[in-house]
Simulated scan of single mutants.
Amino acid sequence: MKWIRKIAGMQSSILGINERNLGFIYPNNARKNYKYADDKYLTKNILHSHQIACPLTYAMIDAIGKIEQAWQATCEWNELVIKPSKGAGGKGIMILKKKNDQWFSQSKPVSEQDIFTHIANIIFGIYSFGDSDVALIEEYIRPHDIFYQIFPEGVPDIRVILLKGVPLMGMLRMPTSRSDGKANLHQGGLGIGIDMKTGRLKEAYDGEKHITCHPDTKHPITGLTLPHWDEIIRMSLKAAMKFPLHYLGVDLVIDQRKGPMVMELNVRPGLGIQLANREGLKDAIYRAKQENLLN
């Protein structure tokens, strides 16, 4: 809500919720196609079919009776991510790391029974607005060293908002101790604006004010340049072209071994990206039209 109140008090170049919905989401995205972004399993199937890099899926669990067998087939890895296929806002994501045959989540030990219960809750729809869901067990992303230097916990991601195949605005979402290692803004993560031409990081917005350093490590943020930026833009464009959605957010990560990967799509990308960039989406759209990139 802080983001919404802040946006409401800014100049007319800021795109508001109603205008975003009525002017961009509804005209550009048929309701029947929302599922391709809302269901991560469907998203990944399309990404795989078009050879667009994304985290590997080790298991898909759609029934309680399949939990133990799927777990035994995947627990050979020492790092895993469990998430709901239809979850939103980072809810229901469990990051697991194994040390000396003991599993840990957010540095706290967890038993196999704890893990099975979490998977069952995903299937029951606890994190998906009460609808039954599918639990995904995925490859763990090891963030690029530039992110580890800024804050060594969690997995930062990059959101690129596109309209009709034109990248309008980008933002790096960075975890903090307040966000419990999650990158989501409403959970306390940072929104960091990105220069779309160079990949250079602008100031970070912490939900209340703009800052130039990470609040926990005090590591400088402003002025750093994201690695693989040209590839990130190309990958976001390719992903947007393969889905029947013409206004969307493409969320990407940078793995230290594999480079950029598409994590998921968002058919209702949030408005906080404007605060992170100190610029309204209306201005970005106007600029794209002036450059003859949009009709």
Rank of each mutant, 00 (worst) to 15 (best):
V160D: 03
A8N: 14
S107D: 13
N295L: 09
N78C: 04
P220D: 09
F116A: 04
A240P: 04
K97C: 01
S111D: 12
D157S: 09
A240C: 13
A73I: 02
D251H: 14
K108P: 00
A63D: 15
L56Y: 09
A240K: 11
M60C: 05
L275H: 10
L248I: 02
A73D: 02
K6P: 00
M94S: 09
G65K: 03
L162A: 06
D251L: 13
I192G: 02
I126M: 11
L42P: 00
T225L: 09
A276C: 11
T225F: 06
R5T: 02
Q51G: 00
E291G: 02
M94Q: 09
M241A: 14
H219F: 14
R268Y: 15
A37L: 05
D62G: 07
Q72P: 01
A73T: 02
N18Y: 14
S105K: 02
I150M: 14
N295S: 15
E138S: 04
F129R: 13
A284C: 07
K2R: 11
T176Y: 08
K238N: 05
G92M: 12
N121P: 00
C54G: 03
K164F: 07
G249K: 03
V250D: 04
S236C: 08
P143C: 11
K182M: 07
G191D: 10
Q72L: 04
A276F: 12
K2H: 11
K6G: 13
I221Q: 07
F243S: 05
A88D: 09
R278T: 02
G191H: 12
S13W: 05
M261N: 01
L252N: 08
A135C: 07
I17R: 13
I14D: 08
T225S: 11
Y148M: 05
E68D: 01
P220M: 10
K40C: 14
D251W: 14
S128E: 13
A30R: 11
G188A: 11
I123W: 04
V267H: 03
E264N: 14
I192Q: 03
I17T: 15
Y41D: 00
Y247D: 01
I52Q: 12
E153M: 03
D206A: 09
I126F: 13
P220C: 08
Y148I: 09
N18L: 14
Q11T: 09
F147Q: 01
F129E: 10
L190V: 05
D180L: 09
M174R: 06
G16E: 10
L275D: 10
P215R: 02
D251Y: 15
Q149T: 14
Y140E: 00
I17V: 13
K238Q: 07
M235G: 12
I150V: 14
I46H: 10
S13F: 06
L163Y: 08
W71G: 04
M169P: 01
H210E: 06
L136N: 00
I95N: 02
R159M: 12
T198R: 15
S107L: 07
